[in-house]
Design a protein around this nucleic acid. Structure first.
Lengths: 201, 201
DNA sequence: GTCTATACAAAGATAGAC
DNA sequence: GTCTATCTTTGTATAGAC
């Protein structure tokens, strides 16, 4: 639709865009509606005109972000046409790409799930993972270890560096622009390592 | 000193204890000084009497917490009398024990470092790690891979599940009390896996 | 040192003109 | 739909009695 281009820069959309940025960077409590208005280049009153409250606006942004982060894992895990090794490589690759573009995403989502777990109970496609092809394949490969343990390790190796990036810099472990190339490298390294773990007994 | 026992339950200490709990659970911005006062069972005015402001109180709590979390890694990494394998086992064991008792610690520290990175620049013993015995041993064992990559993976496997615990529950991957025993298991699993990674070529 | 009462500032939300 | 001005609530900090 040719209206699309217009709607994308509508006031409503500008506010949402700004909200995405500010909420993700500072979290719910530390964000002021005035910050969002300023970032959007609009008047504060308009925020309440379009979205009834700070809370309502936040919910919309939050749900988007949760879907972004789970949207990587679910489809890959549930695709029964790929091998275990392919799944691992895809998960790492897709998360690294997503998180290099949205570095604040995981810490934001994790913090806010933590602050309001009840908002997410039953909303995140429970058991979409536990009954997935990924879990079956893990079970088959290494019946001696809980597949959840593998999955936690895979996600930990992949997502943790983004969560911990400020700390890695503060501790002097990573410097300046080095981070991006380290993460790119991990696309190869992690699948290699996961295979070591699964194959070497 | 026999005064110690008395001082531990002094008003000042009660406030600090309460502050530890509330700040760690909700973060700086979402915490109200009234919450702390209520948790401590004291009057709100006393908080400002003992600590000049919310900010000052927060700084004290924060520094304690940063030291708790880095206090595990630094001594182990810098002990040149242990082997690489021993170091890995010790790091995992100590972090699991620490974080089972303080599950909110990592998300709290990571969020707040992120919100105010400048407070931590140069304060976290820069290069205490990069020049450590741990890094030398990693380099020697596998000269072909950046030792930082190994370290990130080790910390990711160990610390990430605690950061992600609310999400793991929300996604139905972990249920009820299962979490603790999974983490206990990881004390054995992670060192095993790290050895697989380091040894299998 | 501890409390009550209150000042002061910041932030969310709304009324009403245009 | 958008703006200015303002109300209301909430949260930090302080004054002053005990």
């Amino acid at each position: 639709m040719s209206k699309k281009a217009i709607k994308d820069t509508s006031t409503e959309e500008k506010i949402k865009q700004a909200a995405r940025i500010v909420f993700t960077k500072k979290g719910f409590a530390a964000t002021r509606t005035r910050d969002i208005a300023e970032e959007a280049g609009i008047n504060l009153a308009l925020l309440n005109y379009y979205f009834r409250s700070k809370e309502k606006l936040f919910q919309q942004v939050m749900m988007e972000k949760v879907q972004m982060i789970f949207g990587v894992l679910f489809p890959i895990a549930n695709n029964s046409e790929t091998t275990l090794e392919e799944k691992v490589a895809l998960i790492v690759e897709n998360y690294v790409d997503l998180l290099l573009l949205n570095p604040d995403l995981p810490l934001f989502v994790l913090s806010e799930i933590r602050n309001n777990p009840e908002h997410f109970e039953n909303k995140v496609g429970i058991n979409m993972i536990k009954q997935s092809s990924l879990i079956s394949q893990l079970k088959e490969k290494r019946a001696d270890v809980n597949p959840i343990q593998f999955l936690i390790s895979l996600l930990g190796m992949t997502i943790f560096p983004f969560v911990a990036s400020p700390m890695l810099h503060a501790a002097g472990l990573v410097e300046g622009n080095e981070f991006t190339s380290l993460m790119q490298q991990r696309k190869q390294l992690i699948p290699l390592w996961i295979n070591s773990i699964l194959d070497c007994k």
